[in-house]
């Protein structure tokens, strides 16, 4: 009998959790998971949680400070801030997803292909990256939105047009690292097609940083959506969107601080949720045996 066996024989047998599941039972992930799942719930069923109609004016309750009736207070038109923040989840969670998802898909495909095939495409891609990262991200997006015109859909297009380059750059670097492993060469010796090697072998091993980056990026997308909303280039009032809400409150910041603060807190909390989940997923998705 080995020492390990004796160890197990003396301690009471506990049902063993899969190590990946165990990795998820950390306070960080649990908190993040709680935030994200409630955010999704709020986004899908805002009417079930919002106490008032988000667009209903109540001229008897203008700029009321937080109270039991209006926990987040009311705005300059008497609309309930809590209800508006809750309805804004719908828009902002959409932004988080749509402003990142297509960029990621395009970036991953392009990044993998240029990494694997190299050659002139890779050189051109390198120049494109250089050009793109020279400009501040927000400035580029605003420029594209200015051309296309304001609105959510155009904002998605603008962000995707710029952001895919970042995903492609990350994917390219990861695939290049993976390509130094012999299993990629082994695939070629086995006569596998390049598509199979890229998407079945290399990419699954390159996902960990991508997922983490995606999670962080969703948090940033919310910030970006809010910034554009604030500037009047994203979601348009009266649609409730956190950036729009903050913008609406800016004239009353001294008299009705809650109008801007409450949506601000919503942004911070949701962003935190994405980051926490992203961090934990990175640990869980890493292949075991690798450090």
């Amino acid at each position: 009998m080995t020492q390990l066996d004796t160890l197990q024989a003396t301690t009471p047998q506990k049902k063993k959790l899969h190590p990946r599941v165990k990795a998820l039972l950390r306070p960080g992930f649990l908190l993040g998971f709680f935030i994200l799942s409630s955010s999704i719930l709020l986004a899908v069923f805002p009417w079930a949680f919002a106490p008032y109609d988000p667009n209903a004016f109540d001229f008897n309750a203008i700029q009321k400070s937080p109270s039991w009736a209006h926990p987040f207070g009311t705005d300059n038109l008497g609309r309930d801030t809590l209800s508006r923040v809750i309805w804004a989840y719908q828009v902002d969670m959409q932004i988080a997803f749509f402003a990142t998802f297509f960029a990621m898909v395009i970036g991953v495909v392009v990044g993998s292909l240029v990494a694997y095939h190299g050659g002139i495409a890779d050189v051109l891609f390198g120049r494109l990256v250089d050009v793109t990262i020279t400009f501040p991200f927000l400035v580029l997006v605003i420029a594209v939105v200015a051309v296309l015109g304001p609105g959510l859909t155009n904002m998605y297009v603008a962000v995707t047009l710029v952001q895919w380059v970042y995903y492609a750059r990350l994917t390219r670097a990861e695939i290049m690292t993976q390509m130094t492993s012999d299993y990629a060469s082994a695939g070629r010796v086995m006569g596998y097609s390049s598509t199979r090697i890229i998407f079945r072998h290399l990419l699954p091993n390159a996902t960990t940083p991508l997922i983490t980056y995606w999670m962080t990026d969703m948090a940033l997308a919310i910030l970006l959506g809010s910034s554009l909303g604030y500037l009047g280039l994203g979601a348009q009032p009266p649609q409730a969107e956190w950036g729009v809400l903050i913008a609406e409150g800016r004239n009353f910041i001294t008299t009705a601080w809650w109008m801007s603060l409450m949506p601000g807190i919503a942004i911070v909390v949701t962003g935190l949720g994405f980051s926490l989940v992203g961090d934990s997923l990175a640990d869980v998705l890493r292949p075991r045996g690798a450090s």
Binding site: T180, S181, D182, Y183, S185, A186, V189, M190, G191, H201, P204, N205, P287, R288, G289, A290
Partner: peptide, 23 residues
């Protein structure tokens, strides 16, 4: 070429990197 790739197989030095860690 495909037939050649099947008939001639190669094995690598590093036992830790020659297998896809996820398969």
């Amino acid at each position: 070429l495909r037939e050649y790739n099947r008939k001639v197989q190669m094995m690598f030095q590093d036992p830790y990197s020659s297998l896809n860690p996820r398969m």
